[in-house]
Every structure is written in C-alpha cells, then in structure tokens.
Design a protein around this nucleic acid. Structure first.
Lengths: 126, 126
DNA sequence: CAGGATCCTCTTCGATACTG
DNA sequence: CAGTATCGAAGAGGATCCTG
C-alpha cells in the first residue's frame, strides 16, 4: 500500500493539504481560477458574465480570498469609471496542475460514482 | 497558455470536477480517505480514535457520503456487539492519486501562500 | 464600473442524550 | 460497539439596495 507523502501530517489540524482545501474548496474558487486560466486577464464584469450565476458579493469575496492567498493578482487603474483587471499569479498558475489532475479523475471516474449512487439509493430504499 | 481538459465544461453547473469537489471537499472526507489509505481497513471506533476531534455524527455522515459515492466499502458483521469495518474501494484508491498531487502542491507551495497572506494583511492594515 | 452594506435563508457542524 | 435523534450556534451564500 502506498503511503502518502504527508502521512503523518494529514491528521494534524495544520496539515498543509487541509489548509489548501480550505482555501479553494468553496463553491466558486475553482471556477474563478478556471475562468482566469481559460480566458486570461479579465475585468470584474467580464468575469461575472463569463461565469454566470455568481452574485457580486460572492465574486468579490472569492476574488479577495484568492488574492489574499497569492493566487490571483488585482490590478486597479485610477480612472473614471473604475477599471480593475484580475489575472492568475505565477503561483496561481501552478495550482491549476493538481486541479487538472482532479479534473481528469472526475471525467474518467465520475460515471462510476453515479453508478454507485444509483446502487446505494436502491439498497437503501427497501 | 494551457487550456484545461474540461475547458468548456467547467462553467456548467453539472461539470464533473465541481461534482467531485462537492463530494469530497467538506471538512472531514479527505481526512477519512487518508486514514483508510494509511492504516487500511478499520472499525468505526478505530477510525474515530485515529482521526481525533471528529464527532460521531460527522464520522457517520462522512462515511455514509463516501459509501454512497462508491469510494468507501462498509462491511457489517451480524454479531453482538456489532462489528463494522470500513475500507477504501478500488475506486476510492484511485482518487488518492489526484489528492496526493494536491498534497504535493500544498507542501511545495504553502509557504508562498503564507507569505502572500502576511503581505496582504500588511497592505490592508493601513 | 466595481464593489460595499444589509437582510435573510439554508446548510454545516458540534454537543448531548439515547438505543439495539 | 456502532450508530440515531435532536437542538442550537455559526457560517455560507443569495437578493437587494446603495455609492464613489
């Protein structure tokens, strides 16, 4: 059996993996990261339109959080009307690699998950 | 710029990546998966002791959720007192690979995240 | 245009007590 | 031993209104 690298760390409250999950595993962070990865630097309203369904509050909150964690860069121009551009930092680009690993797993194995759910629901029913 | 595999999928509500994140990105799922990966098949109370800090309610809920998604196998023995063993399914073992990629990223880059947080807090302060 | 401030609802999670 | 049931606090997230 393979032992994970952070074998002894994972059960501590301050395990780095758990911290990273806490940082990006909310409803919108991954979607925002992918939006910036796919379409590059974008303004606030462009992001909101591209993503669709995200409220101003959550877009702002998600961007602030990603900025605070050094994954997203916020470039504000002192003009009227305001112009603010968001982009991935070099650090933010590196995290897309493990995320794509997860994306790859999802596309490969999610059908099995759905089968398991159907079976589970069936066995619980009776 | 690299385009992710699920480029056109990520913005849909039913993107498989988002579904997978929804399934495992709660407070305890990843920890339970790692506990079963590191120490193999375990009974309910063994798991609770090993993880530490998890309530019965959340351990049960997390295990049920993982079982429903086909990542964990529940083996109940009809004896008194009850004996129930939990283990990763073959599908559950495959998901540890992308999770370790994330773990690897975390250990490699989390110091940068902490630096970014310190800097962010400093710039916000004034 | 890019948010900030509020209000409200739904969910998450822990603590506690109980059971076959 | 391996759960279930219930309560309450806290937070996430949406809708709406307001502003420099």
């Amino acid at each position: 059996m393979n032992q994970p690298d952070c074998q002894t760390e994972i059960f501590k409250a301050n395990c780095p993996t758990q911290h990273v999950l806490d940082a990006i595993a909310d409803k919108w962070s991954v979607i925002v990261i992918y939006a910036l990865l796919c379409s590059g630097t974008q303004r606030y309203n462009e992001l909101q339109r591209q993503i669709g369904g995200i409220s101003q509050k959550m877009l702002t909150q998600t961007l602030r959080n990603l900025e605070r964690n050094g994954l997203v860069h916020r470039q504000a121009y002192p003009v009227v009307p305001p112009k603010v551009e968001y982009s991935l930092t070099p650090l933010g680009e590196t995290i897309t690699e493990p995320l794509e690993a997860l994306c790859h797993w999802a596309m490969l194995h999610f059908p099995e998950v759905e089968i398991a759910r159907t079976r589970y629901n069936a066995t619980v029913q009776d």
